[in-house]
Amino acid sequence: MPSVQKFPSLESETRSHVDTACASFHVNRKPQTLRSWACFENGPLRPVRISGRLAWSVAEIRRLLAGGE
């Protein structure tokens, strides 16, 4: 049985950027979907790369969930 990760709500998130697992949880997409967005640069969110890892802007996730494109 896979372990279930728990993430803080976006309202209580204090970090400016989150990892792919956390971002995918909040936008209700699989992590691989977000990785595809990053690779092809065709999604509603664009990550930054920090030491070769993807980091997703919390502000942009909030904007997307509020209905912004």
Results as ranks from 00 to 15, higher is better:
N28V: 15
L34G: 03
M1S: 11
R49P: 08
I50Y: 03
R62A: 04
W56G: 00
A55I: 01
R53N: 07
V18R: 00
R15T: 07
A55F: 01
L34P: 03
T14R: 09
R35K: 10
P8E: 03
F40A: 10
A21Q: 14
A66N: 14
T33P: 05
V18I: 07
G67R: 05
M1H: 08
G52D: 03
F40N: 15
E11T: 12
H26K: 07
A21C: 14
P44L: 14
E41T: 13
V48W: 00
R46P: 14
E69F: 15
W56C: 00
L54I: 00
R63D: 07
I50P: 07
N42W: 09
H17M: 06
G52P: 07
P44F: 10
V58F: 07
E11F: 10
L54C: 01
G43C: 05
E41N: 13
S9H: 09
R53K: 14
E13Q: 11
T20K: 08
T33I: 09
P47G: 00
A23P: 06
P8N: 02
E13V: 12
V18K: 00
A21H: 12
A55Y: 02
K30P: 08
H26I: 05
W37V: 03
P47T: 01
V18G: 02
Q32N: 08
T14H: 06
H17E: 07
P31I: 04
L10C: 08
S57C: 04
S16H: 10
V18Q: 00
S36N: 12
F25A: 08
I50N: 09
M1P: 12
Q5C: 11
C22M: 14
G43V: 06
I61S: 01
A21S: 13
K30Q: 12
K30D: 10
P47N: 03
E11D: 11
T20G: 07
L34C: 01
S9Q: 08
L45R: 01
R53V: 09
K30L: 10
F40S: 11
R35A: 06
L64Q: 08
S51N: 14
E11L: 13
E13G: 04
L45Y: 00
T20M: 06
H17P: 05
I50H: 07
N28W: 12
I61D: 01
A66M: 15
S24C: 12
M1G: 12
S57Y: 01
V58E: 06
D19L: 13
R29V: 13
C39K: 15
E13K: 08
A59C: 11
R62C: 06
E41H: 12
T20H: 07
P8Q: 03
F25L: 05
P31H: 02
H26Y: 06
N28L: 13
H26P: 04
E69W: 13
S51Y: 11
N28A: 15
L54R: 00
G68C: 07
M1F: 13
L65T: 07
F7M: 09
